[in-house]
Simulated assay, not measured.
Amino acid sequence: MTIDLEWLGRWRDKREFALRIDDGALLAMLLGLTIWTLAASVVTAVLYAWDKRAAAKHRRRIAERTLLGWSVVGGWPGGWMASRILRHKTLKRSYRIRFVICALVNVAVVATVWHRFG
């Protein structure tokens, strides 16, 4: 029995080429996720600041559902930083619990997608 080493070499080259394509897709996915998280975090932080200002001026507030919605889609880092810097939404325990749940859901979804496709 003989082994066709030329065929094995061609297979290896194709496999390495496929890995390079996958690495590029992985990098693109990571870059896209980073950009999305930064953008969603900025939006969430601005919403926190707007809500804080509205509360101080006794004006119409941003709905908690809106703040939590932006948090669950990736804006939780901005929401967390804004809440600490502005000292906003830090005492309302029910909100903080829902915020942590939103952050954990986002992290779980990202980890699942990363594990499955990354």
Score class of each variant (00 low, 15 high):
63 A>P: 10
12 R>H: 07
115 H>C: 10
14 K>Q: 10
53 R>N: 12
105 V>Y: 00
99 F>D: 08
81 M>H: 07
87 R>G: 00
59 R>A: 10
76 W>T: 00
11 W>F: 11
87 R>V: 07
11 W>I: 11
70 W>G: 14
98 R>N: 09
101 I>L: 14
98 R>I: 04
55 A>I: 06
112 T>N: 09
5 L>S: 06
107 V>W: 12
2 T>Q: 04
14 K>T: 01
97 I>G: 09
74 G>F: 04
18 A>E: 11
112 T>P: 04
101 I>H: 09
32 G>P: 03
27 L>W: 11
16 E>T: 08
67 L>P: 05
60 R>T: 02
106 N>E: 14
73 V>S: 08
116 R>W: 13
53 R>E: 08
63 A>Y: 12
26 L>W: 14
18 A>L: 13
90 T>R: 13
106 N>P: 03
31 L>S: 07
15 R>C: 09
93 R>T: 08
116 R>I: 09
104 L>S: 15
4 D>K: 01
55 A>P: 05
8 L>T: 02
81 M>F: 15
9 G>T: 04
70 W>L: 15
79 G>T: 03
103 A>N: 05
62 I>K: 09
89 K>H: 01
80 W>M: 14
99 F>T: 01
27 L>N: 01
74 G>S: 11
9 G>W: 05
38 L>Q: 03
10 R>P: 02
102 C>Y: 09
6 E>W: 00
109 V>A: 15
84 R>W: 04
52 K>H: 10
108 A>P: 07
102 C>W: 07
96 R>T: 14
66 T>G: 08
115 H>N: 11
98 R>M: 13
39 A>D: 00
77 P>G: 02
116 R>C: 06
37 T>K: 05
95 Y>M: 04
48 Y>F: 15
86 L>A: 05
80 W>K: 01
86 L>E: 02
25 A>T: 02
98 R>A: 15
80 W>A: 09
25 A>S: 05
112 T>I: 08
69 G>Q: 09
115 H>W: 15
40 A>L: 10
11 W>R: 12
32 G>I: 00
94 S>V: 06
114 W>K: 06
8 L>W: 07
36 W>Q: 03
65 R>Y: 12
27 L>Q: 07
101 I>Y: 05
50 W>S: 07
83 S>T: 03
30 L>V: 07
6 E>F: 01
14 K>V: 02
46 V>Y: 11
49 A>Q: 09
111 A>R: 04
115 H>F: 13
43 V>Q: 04
61 R>P: 15
41 S>K: 03
83 S>W: 01
30 L>A: 14
24 G>S: 08
62 I>E: 12
102 C>G: 12
10 R>S: 04
35 I>F: 11
60 R>P: 02
38 L>P: 01
16 E>L: 15
116 R>Y: 12
84 R>Y: 09
34 T>F: 13
51 D>T: 03
113 V>F: 13
64 E>G: 05
20 R>V: 05
